[in-house]
Amino acid sequence: MVRHTIEKAAEIIFSLCAFMAVAAVFSITLYMIANGLPAIFQAGWKEILFSSVWQPTAQEPSFGILYVILTSIVGTFLAVLLGVPVGLLTAVFLAETAPDSLAAVIRPAVELLAGIPSVIYGVLGMLILNPFLYRLEQKLFAGSQTHQFTGGANLLSAVIVLAVMILPTVISISETALRAVPPELKACSLALGASPVTTVFRVTIPAARSGILAAVVLGVGRAVGEAMAISLVSGNSVNLPLPFQSVRFLTTAIVSEMGYAGGLHRQVLFTIGLILFVFIMMINGILSSILKGERLE
């Protein structure tokens, strides 16, 4: 009898543990909506989403976050554009062309890159990348009257840091996908007289496309959600996302102002959080539909 009670209790406790994840996602969603929506009603969704004037502490405050949203979209897009080709080629190297001895050097490096705290990427971006880009900026805009110099803390810096940060994700998932391609397919291509390199680009990569797509989507998720590293390198003022402009992302807006914001200003920061959350949920949805499709294949 006692034993039966213990068995029953164990099962109940374990199922409660399992529902923890459900409860967490449910309450995060609930809290993000509950805290993010009020500002939209109060300030008006047009004022927030489609205005580009961000003056939260002015006498007549204005909470337009259009540029912030655009920065996150453009910055993520560019980071993926830069990081995915490099990541995919590295994955090809690890899965296909590398001799074992070289792969044994590169693979641990990729794993370690994934483990480095994001703040450290920000630190290095700030102290190495920013000065470098500043020199470039001085050359490019020499004599310009209108350009506001950023000291290298601009969209381009943030994009490069993000591209580096998504590399490990893109590499490891693409590599897994490439390895899953049946060796017979490659043999068929080689038997037709295609070279190994041609085979990789014409057969192996297309055959692994859904896995590679998943890698890209995950990379997008990483880039959209990254906060601390880019808050150190992006300059942090609200501007149209152009390469040599100081910019503010959805994430860095929260990081840089949550500390002191109050009232409606604070609520608008939660609205920014909600928008970020919606982006992430969309990305998650796309990802699981890709993975589902893959399983069906």
Binding site: F19, V25, Y31, G225, I254, V255, I280
Partner: peptide
């Protein structure tokens, strides 16, 4: 499926969102 889906979702949420949620909850 629900539990596995939410577990996966949880690992995709960026830490800044966890930060906001933790702060208010």
């Amino acid at each position: 499926r629900l539990i596995e889906f939410t577990t996966q979702t949880l690992s995709g949420i960026p830490s800044i969102i966890f930060g906001l949620f933790g702060m208010v909850f």
